[in-house]
Design a protein around this nucleic acid. Structure first.
Lengths: 127, 127
DNA sequence: TCGGCCATTAAAGTTAACTTTAACTCAGTT
DNA sequence: AACTGAGTTAAAGTTAACTTTAATGGCCGA
């Protein structure tokens, strides 16, 4: 059972963001000590890591909250949760494809710069 | 020379966003007709497409503005512009790598769901 | 000349995801 | 007893990138 500060250090998510995530229903059941301070166990940390992966891939907080809600409902929601993850995986794949497509345009620009520079060298013009 | 509405239709960027981009210095030298209405030529449309690629890959508007500023300065800034594009390309590559890394975590979750579902089928529990 | 459509600007509003602040408490140290 | 450091909450603030609104005007066909 570790403090919020330690979780922040381990996960790279700031203490205030951890509190914010909790207030948004992304981290239910975080325990407290006698003084009311948050205590995180190993499972909580794993969960923070997973949430971070969902966030880093663009899943909005409302959707993560919905996922957590389904999780709390129990095994009856497994197929729905699986469907959510499959959908999200497709979105990530699309995002990657779009990044590649747009990177092509930047590569094209870079190729033009190579030609421009070559021309300038050829005509002895210094940039 | 086409209207803002047509450019919006062609590029998928709304007219208000096109005006916003212009006000932010991303689209300099857009001409006007006698009535003060914007007129876009082929080059402008290409530029909108390129800006869109930069935006879609996460380049912030301030940085695009800086790129445009260098472009307007002329050929003396070619190496700097090329450097910017190379940097941005690296950022996109990193972004893609991070997406793959995080997708792995989602794939792991999906594998767990497969196991869970298999177990439930085996024990004749219906979800 | 009227309605409809398209345009203009400046300014205000929106949205998501945090972050910061203010006021307070509590535990341990000197 | 005072200080330090970490925690708490609720509320306000921030940021980027747009979007919407309000007030205005030109043009064109019926």
């Amino acid at each position: 059972m570790i403090s919020i500060k330690e979780v922040a250090e381990i996960t790279g998510i700031s203490a205030s963001t951890l509190r914010y995530y909790e207030s948004e229903g992304l981290l239910p059941y975080v325990k407290r000590d006698e003084g009311g301070k948050r205590l995180y166990d190993k499972e909580d940390i794993e969960w923070v890591h997973f949430i971070t992966a969902l966030r880093a891939t663009g899943m909005p907080i409302v959707q993560i909250r919905e996922y957590v809600r389904l999780f709390q409902e129990g095994n009856g929601t497994i197929s729905e949760r699986k469907r959510m993850m499959l959908n999200h995986k497709k979105e990530i794949e699309n995002k990657i494809k779009e990044l590649y497509r747009n990177m092509d345009k930047i590569n094209y620009k870079l190729a033009l710069y190579d030609i421009l520079e070559a021309q300038m060298n050829h005509s002895s013009i210094k940039i």
